[in-house]
Nucleic acid binder design. Structure first.
Length: 486
RNA sequence: GGGCCUGUAGCUUAGCUAGGUAGAGCGAUCGGCUCUUAACCGAUAGGUCAAGGGUUCGAACCCCUUCAGGCCCGCCA
């Protein structure tokens, strides 16, 4: 594609160099951030300051010009008067400075006749030249392919995108601060694991040359964090990138971020309290306690309901009187596949199918059948269940937590059952992790744990209905060299 | 994996179920303008209509294939 702007800029840069003007000078030093001036306009009024930023718009009126200068999310208007800055600099501005360029300006802080906070340029300096025209902010960039593949352009042009990732950053730092204030420590555990565990998912496989072994990218860091509880740290967490080799859609990306949190001497009830407190705190500090996502209104201010999974199934007519044959027929009807039937997993699948979408306002679904996970403590009052919770918001699963299983013999037994299920063809059954069981044999205190999907949490708090909107660089198929022209 | 929709200038798009030289706004370039902020006025340039193949005298348009994306469904967080 011919871009005349690009070719013109190539020429212009050549000319600038011949004139002795460096289009990419190394020593541009503004005295003030734009935000400092805009946030304290009155204090700086009449003072001479220097600042720098990108030109988003420039409007010439003969011997007068206005530009919008933006830096780090803050914008200020620059005013250029030929009689103040001089003929040559004004001519230079008109001829060699374009929208999209970075400009350094020194001048007096004033207000224009219309009252707009401005810096009246006495001196200017080209800080960095751009080679493309900046697309007009008014129209924005709407094409998803451009927005996701050239995210820097999306963020540059679309203010909403800029703000989403500011919010994401604040949410994650707020989360870390909240957990640290609770006395928890962030730990870093391996991304490359010889045995993948902690969740049901298909992994990415890789090979470690140094020891000539196949490794996996982690699907979870649960089993490592629990080893750290064994090790004697009573509260740990990790904001972790996890990797699952599954489909890409509006709520799934192959790499995603999950915070897992483990704390000794608490159970799943305590972890629900903590999860709820954390999410409400993040909602309040990011100014959105009632949100709309995908047309659904969600109220984060009310206490999160806690409902037993079996009670929700009972509302759908599935009770302990429902026979296995009837359950199998229902699985068939909804096209749900279980490599090897067992009642607990069947109930879990049917729950997801029948109930999940209805869970708009935050709700903890608790007390799952024990076959749904091998890492959770058996329920203190019903041996067919486990002390597990899942938090749903807006029809999405946002968090999953347990009273952690710390009985090494039972853990070994449950892992063997998972192994049998693998042999029957369940590719998502947990791998047998001998090293983890060995750790449990040394003794793990009673522990509560939870994993919270950060991307989905950010979706809720920023009111976005696609995970791609909250991932800086969502996974996209690479553009074929034959089709690629820019 | 199944269904529906989309891809036209740097950006936003019209034209596609009437097959007949591809149009606009913004942006760019040149000129004018001392208070604009989607600035304005005048002129100019800018297109392999996602890619490939077919039908046709003639294809952005009809057909086939491919690529990329979106939405819904199925499966996993």
């Amino acid at each position: 594609m011919s871009r005349i702007d690009y070719e013109q800029r190539v020429e212009m840069i050549k000319t600038l160099r011949e004139m002795g003007v460096d289009p990419y000078p190394p020593d541009v030093k503004p005295d003030y951030a734009v935000s400092e001036i805009t946030e304290n306009a009155d204090a700086y009024m009449g003072k001479t300051v220097s600042l720098a930023g990108r030109i988003y718009s420039i409007r010439f009126h003969g011997k007068l010009a206005f530009a919008d200068i933006r830096q780090n999310g803050f914008q200020i208007q620059a005013m250029f008067r030929k009689d103040i800055m001089g003929d040559e600099p004004y001519k230079f501005l008109k001829k060699y400075v374009d929208k999209g360029d970075f400009l350094w300006i020194k001048g007096e802080v004033i207000r224009s006749k219309r009252g707009e906070l401005s810096i009246l340029a006495a001196e200017i300096r080209l800080a960095a030249k751009a080679m493309y025209d900046l697309p007009h902010e008014w129209f924005g960039i709407e094409d998803m392919r451009t927005r996701y593949r050239q995210r820097y352009l999306d963020i540059l042009i679309n203010k909403d995108s800029f703000d989403v990732f500011v919010m994401r950053s604040r949410i994650v730092s707020g989360l870390r601060r909240y957990l640290e204030d609770m006395g928890l420590m962030e730990m870093e555990t391996p991304v490359l694991q010889p045995v993948y565990g902690g969740a049901s998912a298909k992994p990415f496989k890789t090979h470690v040359n140094a020891i000539d072994r196949d490794y996996y990218l982690r699907i979870s860091d649960e089993l490592y964090l629990k080893r750290l509880i064994v090790a004697g740290y009573d509260g740990v967490f990790e904001v972790a990138k996890d990797f699952r080799n599954e489909d890409i859609d509006t709520t799934h990306n192959p790499e995603f971020t999950m915070v897992e949190i483990y704390k000794a001497y608490v159970d799943y009830n305590d972890m629900m309290d903590m999860t709820e407190g954390l999410i409400r705190h993040l909602a309040e500090t990011n100014g959105a306690t009632t949100v709309t996502i995908g047309g659904k209104n969600i109220d984060l201010t009310k206490p999160f309901r806690r409902v037993k999974m079996l009670d929700m199934l009972a509302e759908k007519g599935i009770t302990d009187r429902t026979t296995d044959e009837e359950l199998k027929a229902m699985l068939e009807k909804y096209n749900l596949k279980l490599p090897a039937y067992n009642r607990g997993q069947a109930l879990g699948k049917l729950f997801e199918k029948l109930c999940e979408d209805e869970l708009v306002d935050p709700v903890f679904v608790i007390d799952h059948p024990k076959e749904t996970t091998p890492l959770c403590k058996i329920h203190r009052s019903d041996p067919s269940l486990v002390e597990r919770f899942e938090l749903y918001i807006g029809g999405m699963e946002l968090a999953n937590g347990y009273s952690e299983l710390n009985d090494p013999q039972l853990q070994e037994h449950l892992f063997r059952e998972e192994a049998e299920r693998r042999d029957l063809g369940d590719v998502e059954a947990h791998e047998y992790d001998e090293d983890f069981i060995e750790a449990l044999r040394w003794g793990m205190p009673p522990t509560g744990g939870v994993g919270i999907g950060i991307d989905r949490l950010v979706m809720v708090l920023t009111q976005k209905d696609s995970i791609k909107e909250v991932l800086l660089f969502p996974m996209m198929a690479p553009i074929n060299a034959e089709n690629h022209e820019n």
